[in-house]
Structures are given as C-alpha cells and as structure tokens.
Amino acid sequence: MTLDDKKRVLQEMVLHRRFEERCYQAYIERKIGGFLHLYPGQEACCNGVMEAARPGHDYVITGYRDHIHAIKCGSDPKVVMAELYGKATGSSKGRGGSMHIFDAAHRFMGGYALVGGPFPLAAGMAKAIQLQGGDEISICFLGDAANNQGVFHETMNMAKLWNLPVLFVCENNLYGIGTALDRSTAVVDQYKRVCAYGVEAAQCDGQDIDVVYEHAKVAVDYVRSGKGPYFLELMTYRYRGHSMSDSRGYRSREEEEHWKQRDPINILRDKLIGAGQLTMDAFQQFERDADVYIETEVIAFAESSPEPDVSELEHYVLA
C-alpha cells in the first residue's frame, strides 16, 4: 500500500466505525430490528484483505456480521442502511435485513445467518471461476467458532482436492457468542486445523493493517496464481457484544481494555502521524466528515425511503 492508499483506507475505516456506531444508535431508536452484529474492532481484517484483493471483481461471501464487507466491496452505504431500515430502497428491498446484505453487482455474494453455511458456497463459487477461466478469486470471511461445523472440514478437503481458487479468512475474535474459543475448540490455533487437508495456511495479527495486508497479499497471490486454496487466520477482537442483547459477562473489562490499546484505526493513524503524513487535526476532520456524511446522506436516505409495498410480499420467491 502506498501512503496515499493508507490515508484513504484510514478514512474508510473511520467511516466503517462510525457507520456501525450509528447502526447501534438506530437500533436503540428502534429504526433497525431483528439481530444486529457490529464490526468495531475488526476493521483492519476486512480492509487489509480487500486492499490486497480486488473489491468488486473478486467474489466475497460472509456471515451475519456483514455490513462492512459489503461496503468494502463497493456497496453504497446508503443502500446498506436502507436495508437495515427495511426500506424498499435497501439492497434486498427490505426483505433481507442486517444479516442478509447482498450486492451482486459488486460481487458481494451475501451475508448468511447459519454459522458455517458460506464455506461450501465459497468453494462453489471458486469452482465456477475455475470452469469459466476467469482471474477472479473467491473470498470467504468467517469467524473462529464457525470452524467447528462439519462443513468446514468437508469444504477444506474439497477445496484442496480440486485445487479451487478460494481464500478463507478466519477473523478470530476469540469468542463464539459467549463461549471462549478454548472452551469450544480443542486446537485453538485455527490455521493449524487445515493442515490435515493440505491447505496452505498462516496466522497473523489482525489489528495492524500493514501486517494484515502483507499476509493477505501473499495469500491472494497464491490463490490467484492457481496454486489452490489458502486459509488466513487474523487475530482480532470485537468491541461490542455479539449481537445487541449481550452484556459481555463472559469476558473481563481488562481484556477489553487490552484490545482497545491495539485499536486498528489508532494504529494506522499513529503510524501516519509518525511518518509526518497526517496531523491529528486532519484525522479528526475525517471523523467529522464521516459523521456528516452518515447523517446527511446515509441516514437521511434511509429515513426518507419508502416502505416496501405489501402487495409485493410474494415477489422474489420464484423466478
């Protein structure tokens, strides 16, 4: 990444953070319903990997913590917010909600609510790429706890067996809802688990975007060059609860504080300031700009958009 890239990505990450925090507020105001899983703390994962890949060109799929992955692939934040509001202008026209953001035009192939569900779908997209001879790759972002689903193991085997161009990114935030990784998983280093299938793998810090980018670059190049699947484990942390009704009783405030000292946005900000490429004032301007944009454009669009038409309830069930 060039310094200009880094500045742009910092600005994006600020927007991602503010977007999610604004979702939190909108949920409290009951503008957003259902389940809401937020991304603050993990921004360097999606951003670092996608900077090494080709957003909008490579196919991306993930779980229910999906807003930022969609936006990073090129989705309009207004359309994502409108979906969270359940509006007709939303990405799924109000039918999907927070866990089901889709943007096929930008090759964001969706957010899915069943833990582990996207693993084989990602491999399937890679199969299609292989058949069709494109230079895209398929990228699957999922959590740590998802790797305990049987389908994870089945998919790793097939991905290697057929040498599929798929990158599995494991965002290891140490918990699956309220269960710590070492209480659910015999081998806590996730990257070691795919060795049995011969899948190339690595583990690295998920908070410093430079580190994420370097590792992701190796992984993406490997997959794109036709060498087969790759599994990249990023060590990270989610600041908020799993979803909205989570009082975080399963972890200590000290642990949370420890991770906040390694905030992905602050790490990049301080590096850029240290390199003389950014001032604190300029950074704070990023934050203000993000807030103004979110309020005057994103929220305004979601608020003013129409509700879906009830007479169209049965649209989109079948082709």
Binding site: G33, G86, G94, R95, H100, E307, P308, V310, V317
Partner: peptide, 12 residues
C-alpha cells in the same frame, strides 16, 4: 402464513 421465506421488514 404466506408461502414466502420470512421477510425482514416489519410490515411485510
């Protein structure tokens, strides 16, 4: 219920 996957929007 209607023969649809459950929609998210509250009115739907």
């Amino acid at each position: 219920s209607a023969f649809v996957p459950q929609p998210y929007n509250h009115t739907l």
